[in-house]
């Protein structure tokens, strides 16, 4: 089923070679290779328990893993999570990982930790993207609606000036309209040139945005294809589109 499609003409942003991760004796992620090109939006699909979140956590070193990682051609395999963020690899975790007792402003300020001098400019850019956050600026993150929390999580990640943004199920628990709004914002960010690796359950929405799709099952990539090719794979189409 595996279909090899390279991102022709684009230089590599992130490349993972034979990355694997285990929880105790359970291998949640079998040796897996993938790549993301500059300015590309790649979606990872897969059923619950396929290892999608583990893959993102392994790529950002939040979970210990084996294998090799390259960012813009430079090996980054040994770097811890915070060093990856310094290089521009920033992740929005499942559940958003917001600082619930901090205000919207404070969350964004922490997001700009690595670029403190540019806090105001970055914050203005985030508010341009998510005007509702400006209205809620002194409200605590925990008191925001689910959609607003997700906006804040993405906004906070953008404050860190990412080169590659990884998102783990950003539409999880959101109303369809809010989910659609969030995903269309991601599409806009990608059009501006931001590389995005998106794990998403709402496949039809995600497939509209993605330039390439990896399908993960039982801890390994079983397919790599273009979104419009899913229709021709009846089993995948039945599972993810209908």
């Amino acid at each position: 089923m595996s279909v090899q499609i390279l991102s022709a003409g684009r230089s590599s942003l992130l490349e993972a070679r034979e990355v694997s991760a285990s929880y105790g004796h359970v291998q949640a992620l079998k040796p897996t290779s993938l790549h993301i090109a500059e300015g590309e939006l790649v979606t990872i699909l897969g059923p619950n328990g396929a290892g999608k979140s583990t893959l993102l956590r392994a790529l950002t070193r939040l979970t210990a893993c084996r294998g090799r990682l390259f960012f813009r051609g430079t090996e980054i395999s040994g770097l811890p999570t915070h060093q990856l963020a310094r290089r521009g690899i920033v992740m929005v975790q499942e559940g958003r990982g917001l600082f619930a007792q901090m205000s919207v402003r404070e969350n964004l300020m922490v997001g700009a930790f690595l670029h403190a001098a540019e806090t105001d400019r970055q914050m203005a850019a985030v508010f341009e993207l998510f005007p509702r956050l400006r209205e809620r600026i002194d409200q605590t993150a925990g008191s925001l609606s689910g959609g607003e929390q997700q906006m804040l999580a993405i906004g906070r990640a953008l404050m860190a000036k990412p080169q590659l943004l990884m998102l783990d199920e950003p539409s999880l628990g959101l109303a369809p309209r809010a989910a659609s709004e969030i995903l269309s914002t991601l599409g806009e960010l990608n059009r501006r040139g931001l590389g995005i690796l998106l794990v998403e359950q709402k496949a039809p929405l995600a497939l509209k945005l993605a330039q390439r799709v990896y399908v993960l099952s039982l801890g390994k990539i079983v397919a790599e294809l273009k979104p419009d090719e899913i229709e021709s794979h009846h089993d995948l189409a039945r599972y993810y589109l209908h």
Binding site: L62, A85, V90, Q93, F99, M102, V110, F113, R156
Partner: peptide, 24 residues
């Protein structure tokens, strides 16, 4: 200070703090 912001982030969520570049 910026240092205090890092500590507050660590108190809030260590993985989130790491993901934002804070050397926890």
């Amino acid at each position: 200070s910026r240092f205090g912001r890092a500590l507050a982030a660590i108190a809030g969520s260590e993985p989130a703090a790491l993901a934002l570049g804070i050397d926890v």
